[in-house]
């Protein structure tokens, strides 16, 4: 109960550092989700609708990458962007940008895998019917998106959930630097290591509250669209 009280105190005290951490967390999660969806959704649509050589292997590869351990992704990005790495000159290590890059590597396979499965199973009758009516590709894509919006919102939420809850990759490439790259999850890890369990738990509750609000908003939007 103490943790709950502390969580609400934290939220309503408008603590400057907490707000900054929240800001970085939301910025990182928003951009990594958006970029992953921009890459993953069209890629998933392509894999879901087209037949090509090597499709089965590509699907296996994507399914494997869906389970990519975050620390491995973090290490991979760290190696690429470290001072001696191929992209070292960009000086992106320990910035929010590199955290977004690591997250995109982690989340894009999830978005691609889920959307290709959805399109393969659900969109087939939609595409068949729409093509049969002689509708153009743009209209067909519009119909698929409209018909599958509940599933698509679930995919986006899954990506956002993965992004906001991630700790391994962002701590490796971001470094958990105060006032710069510290996010909710790395802050929780730090507070736990310091033995401030109650405060860490309070931060966890704040993180859950954010996830809940985002989910509730998405559910509301889907419900509104259904009633149209």
């Amino acid at each position: 109960m103490d943790s709950f009280r502390q969580a609400f105190d934290l939220l309503f005290s408008l603590d400057r550092e907490l707000l900054q951490i929240l800001g970085v967390t939301m910025r990182m999660s928003f951009f990594s989700t958006a970029i992953s969806c921009l890459i993953g959704l069209p890629l998933g649509a392509l894999i879901g609708t087209k037949s090509f050589k090597g499709k089965s292997f590509l699907k296996k590869l994507i399914h494997t990458l869906m389970g990519l351990p975050p620390v491995v992704a973090g290490l991979f990005v760290y190696t690429l962007f470290t001072h001696y790495g191929p992209f070292g000159e960009l000086n992106l290590l320990f910035t929010v940008k590199i955290m977004v890059i690591a997250q995109v590597i982690l989340i894009t396979p999830i978005v691609t895998g889920l959307s290709s499965s959805f399109i393969e199973s659900t969109s087939k009758p939609i595409i068949e019917t729409a093509r049969g009516l002689g509708l153009n590709n743009l209209k067909i894509v519009g119909l698929c998106l409209s018909e599958g919006r509940t599933s698509l919102v679930s995919i986006v939420l899954t990506a956002f959930g993965r992004s906001i809850a991630e700790v391994g990759a962002v701590s490796i490439v971001g470094g958990n630097i105060q006032w710069k790259t510290r996010v909710m999850t790395t802050a929780i890890m730090l507070e736990t290591n310091k033995g401030k369990f109650s405060f860490a738990l309070a931060l966890g509750i704040v993180l859950l509250l954010i996830a809940f609000v985002v989910n509730a908003l998405a559910s509301f939007m889907v419900k509104e669209a259904k009633n149209d």
């Binding site: 009758p125 068949e128 049969g132 018909e147």
Partner: peptide, 11 residues
């Protein structure tokens, strides 16, 4: 024009 065997109901 083609009508598939499985009729689909759009929203």
């Amino acid at each position: 024009l083609y009508m598939p065997q499985q009729a689909y109901a759009f929203r």
